[in-house]
């Protein structure tokens, strides 16, 4: 009998250990979400990290030019028309540049939009610095309204030679229902975090 209680105690200890491993792994599943974000921001993987700079660049590298192409799309459920006003710009690294995007709300209701950027190739995002961008905030358009939205950026001088063309893509999401709920501010926070890294 003592042998049995000894085994039962050993079993209990092992079950507690295994049970806590299970709890830890369940939490680890959720911890992967912020870990993934941090990893993407630090390494620039996945094209989501676009540096946000509060100060404009002053030194310009005139020896080379980089082409920045623009592409836009609207997510399902977003009724706006959304277009860049130029297809691309050629800039010297370090040169400040302004580009405009046009959005039109053709529906009968007020709609709030949030643009989410992405850069291709993914690592190029590390060298694209935005000083102003409509994607930092939500945009609200009343029925039939249109707006020209500005983006001010420069490309870092330390951009590698082989990166000659970058593509900046914006996807516009309809966030009318969740606007102000707090959830939608996450992209802005992410960019602030990225800016802190530099």
């Amino acid at each position: 009998m003592t042998e049995q209680t000894k085994v039962a105690q050993k079993n209990k200890r092992l079950i507690v250990k295994l049970g806590s491993a299970i709890v830890v792994m369940f939490c680890f599943g959720f911890a992967l979400v912020p870990l993934y974000d941090v990893l993407c921001e630090v390494t620039g993987l996945n094209g989501r990290t676009i540096a946000r700079s509060d100060t404009a660049s002053s030194l310009i590298d005139e020896s080379r030019t980089v082409r920045l192409q623009f592409t836009t799309s609207v997510a399902p459920g977003m009724p706006w028309q959304f277009k860049p006003m130029v297809k691309y710009v050629d800039v010297h690294p370090g040169e400040n540049e302004v580009v405009k995007f046009k959005a039109l709300n053709p529906t009968g209701q007020r709609v709030v939009g949030q643009a989410v950027p992405s850069v291709s190739p993914g690592l190029g995002g590390l060298y694209l610095n935005k000083t102003e961008c409509f994607c930092f905030d939500q945009q609200a358009l009343n029925s039939g309204e249109s707006v020209e939205m500005g983006l001010v950026f420069f490309i870092s001088k330390d951009i590698p030679e082989e990166l000659k063309t970058l593509t900046l893509s914006y996807t516009l999401f309809n966030v009318t229902e969740t606007a102000g709920a707090g959830i939608i501010n996450i992209p802005a926070q992410r960019q602030t975090l990225a800016a802190n890294i530099y």
């Binding site: 992967l32 979400v33 993934y36 997510a75 989410v116 999401f173 966030v175 939608i184 992209p187």
Partner: peptide
């Protein structure tokens, strides 16, 4: 993505 998430994250997890 609209709320700051990422569909590629799903595939990683």
């Amino acid at each position: 993505a609209a709320g700051g998430g990422d569909p590629v994250l799903f595939q990683h997890i």
